[in-house]
């Protein structure tokens, strides 16, 4: 029983890692906000699966709860909230017109960032201290983190920045779960609550921005500057 699990483990880990990265790359190459949301939803589902895997291997019941929360909040509630709020916003505002770096180049950069993540995590941690689960997920979480940051830097659509933020958050969750088998459940709940409230607030803001500025291009929000 134990032996077969160890054999199966790498495959599951690789599978979920690949799933997460594919979802992230889907974000990098897409323009439309709705596409992003579905990519995010897909990513969150895979993330919940990955968390459940970790929970299974670690035998920690808290992670199951965290996985369930992920599924509930990130895969269901957040996309719903964002969709509902943005329904009132005109469609033409919801498409990324011109990111700073073209989509083709973005993919290359994202790939580089994945490479960088592997390099960084290799240096960060001494090999001996890592189990297989952690060593597989750590670079992936780092990639999510960096790519999320990259799309936030690159994209001008406010909606997409929110999704970028959520991707970073996903990377964090994966990192936390893989590395430490979860924080105490109280804090996990606190973090989820923060994320949820954050999404609500940002969607209010998104609505206000679209009303006030008649655009969701954050490049246009540049009245407050020094020159």
């Amino acid at each position: 029983m134990v032996d077969s699990m160890i054999l199966a483990q790498p495959d599951i880990l690789m599978l979920s890692s690949a799933g997460l990265l594919i979802a992230t790359f889907a974000v990098v190459v897409r323009r439309g906000f709705v596409d992003w949301l579905s990519a995010y939803r897909y990513q969150s589902i895979v993330l919940a699966g990955a968390a459940a895997t970790i929970a299974y291997f670690a035998g920690a019941w808290e992670i199951y709860i965290a996985a369930a929360l992920t599924l509930l909040i990130k895969a269901i509630i957040i996309p719903k909230v964002l969709l509902r709020v943005t329904r009132k916003i005109k469609d033409e505002l919801k498409t990324e017109a011109n990111p700073y770096v073209s989509l083709r180049l973005s993919v290359v950069i994202a790939a580089l960032l994945v490479g960088l993540s592997y390099a960084l995590t290799r240096q960060m941690l001494p090999d001996s201290t890592l189990d297989k689960v952690a060593s597989t997920y750590l670079p992936v979480s780092m990639s999510l983190f960096l790519i999320g940051l990259f799309v936030m830097v690159n994209r001008r659509l406010a909606l997409n920045q929110v999704v970028g933020l959520l991707i970073i958050e996903n990377g964090l969750f994966l990192f936390t779960t893989a590395l430490t088998h979860g924080l105490s459940i109280l804090i996990e709940i606190g973090i989820f609550a923060d994320i949820l409230v954050g999404v609500v607030i940002s969607s209010i803001l998104l609505y206000r921005i679209s009303q006030t500025f008649d655009t969701l291009d954050v490049g246009e929000l540049e009245k407050l500057r020094d020159d």
């Binding site: 983190f145 940051l149 936030m152 406010a158 920045q161 933020l165 970073i168 958050e169 964090l172 990192f175 936390t176 590395l179 430490t180 924080l183 973090i191 954050g198 607030i201 940002s202 803001l205 206000r208 921005i209 006030t212 500025f213 954050v218 929000l221 009245k223 407050l224």
Partner: peptide, 30 residues
């Protein structure tokens, strides 16, 4: 307008920043 713009920038940058902080916090925990 200005308030909204400021709020947006604040939200985005501070949240990104704080996710770094959480990353670091978890790392310490690890």
């Amino acid at each position: 307008e200005n308030a909204i713009e400021a709020a947006w920038k604040y939200l985005i940058i501070a949240t990104v920043g704080l996710s770094f902080a959480l990353f670091g916090t978890v790392f310490f925990y690890y």
